[in-house]
Design a protein around this nucleic acid. Structure first.
Lengths: 393, 393
DNA sequence: CCAGTTTGTTGCCAATCCCAACATATTACC
DNA sequence: GGTAATATGTTGGGATTGGCAACAAACTGG
């Protein structure tokens, strides 16, 4: 019910796995690019023209991609047809939050076709969430092709093996078999994973992490700090699927505990709420918060920003020393903090982290906007198809 | 000059890559096990009997493995011959330290055939190290088959791309092209990497990390704290090859800096020297230190052990929250600290780290003894052969 | 309109793995 | 001690698949 770990010990490959791998390679490139010419596929994969032709034809037959007439390119030579995702290939992406549940239909290529936000009066329990999601999927069903599966970005710890939500403090969920229940309710294959981990995957494929092999994604939301790691070109999941919890790393000697029960966590110091309070705001969306931060001339606000940047600096320092990433991608209010005092975070890093590891590190902001988690959830739902295009239909 | 990263973007596979992969799979299993029957190879790889026969035959022809008569097994059926590493396949493993340079001949299967330790009066500079290593290799050459290559475990930060030693504080090296110079001097292909990272790889293949996909190796030596990470079944190297520097993560607000220039590092608090001082010892080998620690009834010693365990607990907590490993493997005096107060480290972890991530974490001690770094260095030297057995000879 | 260039298309070839039938070596049982 | 049962090596044939080369098609540029 989830993407598979690479096998601990290597296994042999039969004849069929070759075709499967090449099929997957082509489909993945089409998915990541949103549309490529056959000749570029030939160049990128290193496979023969005739082989690419056969592979694309098979994907067309399976209804996964379509070929359209080449665009005028003003280049010498016979034009190469464009291979792009077949619009009939879609999945359902879901992101339950404290105040709302978002459901979207996402096509191959990472295109959000339609997005519905269902506000909630209070944090939904799992039964409510399942009901709302199921109903919304039914509504969407009329306007879209049949989805291949469903992916859920959960703000909490999700067991990779079966999509069990071990702990989602802000939703008040503990050991809820969310994926299994939704699978039963909708008849679809359902996979679930941590939201920030999926955000990292989304930025890896379509955003600020494109083409990188090693980066860290850190998101600051109303409910805390989430993180995801891409290492060696693949998401780092850890043994159970709980990796990336930077929000709970230790930064102070304070004894009180965060909502997940860890003492001295950075989540206790680095909070959106404190920032809003310093600004004298009741609430604000991401853009509003950032505008207020950048515009503020208050010494108190500056002090609070500085204090929070110092804590963020510690997290980044540890991440750089431990993971040696090429880039650090900031989302949510963490990006706003960095924007409020440009260069400060960089300076903090340069002061603290190992100089050698800093050589190529750049701190940047996330490129995908509010769709990031839905795109990540869709990526999870597409994982099986992308690994083995012949497995579906 | 080093093991390759998995490609960021997928590449197609031609017909030949299938054979290469299967050949590599078989050789790797033989290497890791030190000797397996052909029938077990068949079972483990999922390949056909006849395919395994062909693959093994090719490896025999290439001089990489040999087949020997089956051992009596008291099982029904025709006995299956044992496939084991060909003793003619060896590499040179090197580990330069402050007070000595170790050089070894290591065979496929991780067997240290001969090990030479060259004591140094003072930390050697690179020219001295190259001279000593070259001379020692020449001496060893007479008693062993021609080595395929050389691997070096360096106590410092090594650029993965070319084996450039960016910084080895305890040796006083900075930006030294060690691998390139040794390659020129010996005519062998030479690869270099961080010692703790290679220790992790060695424990993964032959020690406490056998069969695991996610674990962290932490070593405490005279020169500080080193670390290595195995994630998703492969070593986590990071962008430049500098990942795993747990020794420099922040644990205190102290302003002074460690030898690599990082302030507040755990390396400043968690030191072998302080432990020896508390014990009133001038120097001791690993066993001696551990015996003294376990035997000590001094309150001062107990306090110092407790203090250091608390700092180690912070590092482990961060590692668990960020990486969600299945196991944490301790080496050097870190293993002795844990042995001095059994259960304390576990309790600290359980108190601080995310409960969910703790489910399956066990803290264990490294299994490989003093050969660990040489085995790791040999693993590095064998990497190219194991990835493509047809590439050699 | 023709030369040059690039790419799709087609038919054939070679590599490699699987399979099935047979041979062989061992244990189990009478 | 001989025979059945079992497991595994060996051998020859077959199918799948990617590469290659020759040809056809579609575009640019003059």
């Amino acid at each position: 019910m989830n993407a598979e770990h690479p096998p601990a010990l290597p296994v042999g490959r039969g004849r069929d796995s070759l075709r499967r791998h090449n099929l997957a390679t082509v489909l993945e490139r089409v998915h990541h690019s949103g549309g490529v010419s056959r000749s570029r596929l030939t160049g990128a994969t290193g496979l023969n023209r005739s082989t690419i032709a056969a592979l694309v034809t098979e994907l067309v037959v399976r209804g996964l991609v379509e070929e359209v007439d080449p665009v005028t390119t003003n280049q010498v030579g016979r034009p190469s047809p464009i291979v792009r995702p077949d619009p009939r290939t879609v999945v359902i992406a879901v992101n339950p939050e404290v105040d709302a549940i978002s459901v979207a239909v996402v096509g191959l290529g990472g295109v959000v076709r339609e997005r519905v936000r269902r506000p909630m009066d209070a944090a939904p329990d799992v039964a409510q969430a399942v009901a709302v999601i199921t109903q919304t999927v039914d509504e969407l069903a009329g306007r879209h092709p049949a989805p291949l599966g469903m992916g859920i970005a959960v703000p909490g710890l999700v067991r990779a093996a079966d999509g069990l939500v071990r702990l989602a403090p802000h939703l008040g969920w503990r050991d809820e078999p969310l994926a299994a229940r939704l699978s039963r309710a909708t008849g679809l294959p359902v996979a679930a994973a941590n939201d920030a981990g999926l955000g990292a995957a989304a930025e890896h494929v379509f955003g600020a992490g494109r083409g990188l092999t090693d980066f860290v994604y850190l998101n600051g939301g109303a409910s805390g700090i989430g993180g995801g790691i891409i290492a060696g070109g693949v998401p780092l999941r850890g043994a159970g699927g709980y990796a990336g919890e930077f929000g709970h790393t230790l930064v102070t000697a304070r004894g009180d505990r965060d909502r997940a029960g860890a003492p001295g966590s950075v989540e206790l110091e680095l909070t959106r709420a404190t920032l809003l309070r310093a600004l004298g705001l009741d609430d604000a969306d991401a853009d509003g918060l950032e505008r207020a931060l950048v515009a503020s001339e208050s010494a108190d606000v500056a002090a609070e920003v500085d204090r929070q940047l110092a804590f963020l600096g510690v997290v980044l320092r540890n991440a750089v020393d431990i993971l040696n990433p090429q880039r650090i991608v900031l989302g949510g209010f963490l990006a706003s903090l960095d924007a409020a005092v440009p260069g400060r975070l960089d300076a903090l890093l340069r002061e603290q982290a190992l100089a050698v590891s800093l050589d190529e590190v750049r701190v940047v902001r996330a490129e995908l906007g509010s769709d990031i988690l839905l795109i990540g959830a869709a990526e999870l739902a597409f994982a099986g198809l992308l690994a083995d295009p012949a497995s579906v239909r």
